[in-house]
């Protein structure tokens, strides 16, 4: 009797969460798969058109441009914030004077809403009155500052800088936690063996931080694939789609051009790419699980 009750109990606890989750997250996900096979325009009822949307995607230049931009975003995200965050964590792991203030300065951007970050940076990048160009011109470095958000070659990078500005604090937090969990005896032992600081870092610390690094990388990848708000607020993907990313392109297709079916197919592609990394993450979690 007790056995039976206990078998039945976990489902009781899980019932509400699972129902909510199925209805609001899993169900809609599958519905998106279905929509991607239709030509739904948001008004009339969706008509099944097979894989036409996907065929069109393969000839859509803007789609590939957005995909490339996502990859650029990804490449910057797995390098710059990771290196910077790790370096900051290494520095701040010691008792630096003013440690709290420094940490806070790097955490702050994380707390701001994306919309707010976008607005603030939009003002910094303002070609005429903005701070960056005012400084550049004021110091006589250039005669006329560049149009950070209007130049096709600069727009995407200008946005990525904002994203990096937000991300560094996060990576730093993760590495700080990782460093705290390392037993200092390992480092002492290495020092006694005559290793210099760099060697200790390379041969001892980095391998020990490996689990954190995997998490950091996966989170960076996922975040760069999900990028939306900053682009939407700062350039809307412009000029001439040069800063478009998949999520933004999908949004524009769905709500600007009302091609909901097509938008859904972009969403599915985005999902499939993410899935690879979600599996890597799950695999990591699984390994932790097996340690139990």
């Amino acid at each position: 009797m007790v056995r039976l009750r206990r078998n039945f109990l976990p489902y009781l606890f899980l019932a509400i969460p699972i129902i909510i989750y199925l209805v609001w997250v899993i169900g809609p996900m599958f519905y998106t798969f279905y929509l991607s096979l239709t030509n739904w325009d948001g008004l009339s009822s969706p008509q099944f058109i097979g894989f036409r949307n996907y065929e069109r995607l393969f000839t859509d230049r803007v789609f590939f441009l957005s995909l490339t931009n996502n990859m650029k975003w990804l490449a910057s995200f797995v390098t710059v914030p990771v290196v910077l965050g790790l370096a900051l964590a290494m520095i701040l792991n010691r008792a630096v004077p003013g440690e709290k203030f420094f940490k806070m300065s790097f955490y702050m951007p994380m707390v701001l809403a994306m919309v707010v970050s976008g607005l603030i940076w939009g003002w910094l990048y303002h070609p005429r009155g903005g701070l960056i160009n005012s400084v550049l011109v004021g110091l006589g470095i250039v005669e006329k500052g560049p149009g950070w958000l209007s130049d096709r070659d600069l727009a995407l990078w200008s946005i990525i800088i904002v994203a990096i500005w937000r991300q560094v604090g996060y990576v730093m937090v993760l590495y700080l936690a990782g460093l705290k969990s390392i037993n200092p005896e390992y480092l002492e032992a290495a020092k006694i063996d005559g290793a210099n600081d760099w060697q200790v870092f390379r041969k001892v610390l980095l391998p020990l931080l490996m689990p954190v690094s995997v998490i950091v990388l996966v989170i960076s990848v996922i975040d760069s694939l999900r990028a939306f708000d900053l682009v939407s607020v700062m350039t809307r993907g412009g000029p001439a789609n040069s800063s478009s990313v998949l999520a933004n392109y999908m949004y524009i297709q769905a709500f600007n051009n009302y091609r909901m079916g097509y938008a859904a197919s972009i969403a599915v592609i985005l999902f499939l790419i993410s899935l690879v990394f979600i599996f890597i993450y799950l695999w990591r979690v699984m390994q932790d699980e097996l340690e139990y």
Partner: peptide, 26 residues
Amino acid sequence: NRLIFFTFVGGMLLPFQVLMLPVFKL
């Protein structure tokens, strides 16, 4: 147990834009 757990973990990494249209309809 595992399956539900992994669904939760997978879902938290989902690009939420995927859900936009259906969630509106729902």
